[in-house]
C-alpha cells in the first residue's frame, strides 16, 4: 500500500513536472476535445501546420484562421495616464492569440478543417474569463511601442534595458519594439498558470515593467 502510493506520488510528480514544461495537458492542449477530429497532428494542428501554412505575419507555420473583427483598443480614452499610442488594431503575435480569444472565429476553424463559426460544426469559444472579446478596453494595452520616450513620458515604467526573463525587456518582452500578448504569455508553457512567462508571485511579472 505504502509502496503503491509512493509510486503514484512519484508518477504524479514526474508527470506534472513534465507537463508543466510542455503544452501537453495544458488548456491549450485541445487534442482530446470532441470537436478535434483531425486524424493526426491533433495537438499542434489547431494552430500550426508543417506545410502550406497561411501567410500571416509573425506567424510560425500558422494554421488557425485569423479574425477579421474590429477591435476597440485600450487607449488614453481608457486611462488619462496611458501615454503610449497603440495602433488602430492589434498587430504582431497578438492577432494570433486573438484568432481564438476574441471569440469570433471557431476554435476548429483551421487548415484541414475550416469550419466557420455559425456553421453546424463550428465550435465557439466558451464563455470564460479567458474569452478576451473584441473590446480590448478592459484588458492590458497591447501593440504599442515601448521605448525610451514612453518611459520618459510615463515616469513609472522601467527602461527597456531592464533585466527581464534572462535578457532585457527590449530583447525578451518586446516584439518589433512593441508590447504584445507574448510579452507576458507563453502559449506553450503553463508552468506559472495563465501561461505567464514567469511567476507573478508578489506581482513580479507586473513589476518587471511597472515602477509601483
Amino acid at each position: 500500500m505504502k509502496k503503491i502510493s509512493f509510486i503514484t506520488l512519484m508518477l504524479l510528480a514526474v508527470t506534472s513536472m513534465s507537463f508543466a514544461q510542455t503544452i501537453t495537458g495544458t488548456p491549450h492542449d485541445m487534442s482530446a476535445q470532441a470537436w478535434n477530429t483531425m486524424a493526426s497532428n491533433k495537438l499542434c494542428g489547431v494552430c500550426h501546420t508543417p506545410h502550406n501554412a497561411m501567410a500571416v505575419s509573425q506567424a510560425p507555420l500558422w494554421s488557425h484562421t485569423t479574425s477579421s473583427t474590429v477591435y476597440t483598443m485600450y487607449t488614453s480614452a481608457q486611462s488619462s495616464t496611458f501615454n503610449a499610442t497603440p495602433g488602430a488594431a492589434p498587430g504582431g503575435n497578438s492577432l494570433l492569440c486573438l484568432s481564438c480569444h476574441d471569440g469570433t472565429v471557431a476554435l476548429n476553424n483551421h487548415i484541414g478543417n475550416t469550419l466557420p463559426l455559425g456553421s453546424t460544426l463550428g465550435v465557439a469559444y466558451p464563455t470564460t474569463t479567458t474569452l478576451v472579446g473584441a473590446a480590448l478596453t478592459n484588458d492590458h494595452p497591447i501593440s504599442f511601442t515601448y521605448d525610451a520616450a514612453l518611459v520618459t513620458a510615463d515616469g513609472a515604467l522601467r527602461p527597456i534595458t531592464t533585466a527581464a526573463l534572462g535578457g532585457t525587456i527590449a530583447t525578451k518582452m518586446l516584439f518589433g519594439g512593441k508590447m504584445e500578448c507574448a510579452s507576458c504569455h507563453n502559449p506553450h508553457n503553463n508552468q506559472y498558470t495563465s501561461f505567464q512567462r514567469m511567476t507573478n508571485n508578489a506581482s513580479q511579472l507586473c513589476l518587471t515593467c511597472h515602477i509601483k
Binding site: Q78, S80, F82, H140, C184, A202, S203
Partner: peptide
C-alpha cells in the same frame, strides 16, 4: 494571495473604470 497588484488591478476583464 501572493499577488500584490491584484487587489486593485487585473490585466484582463477589468471593471470599466480605468486603469484596469
Amino acid at each position: 494571495e501572493n499577488e500584490i497588484c491584484i487587489f486593485c488591478h487585473t490585466s484582463h476583464n477589468s471593471n470599466p473604470q480605468s486603469p484596469l
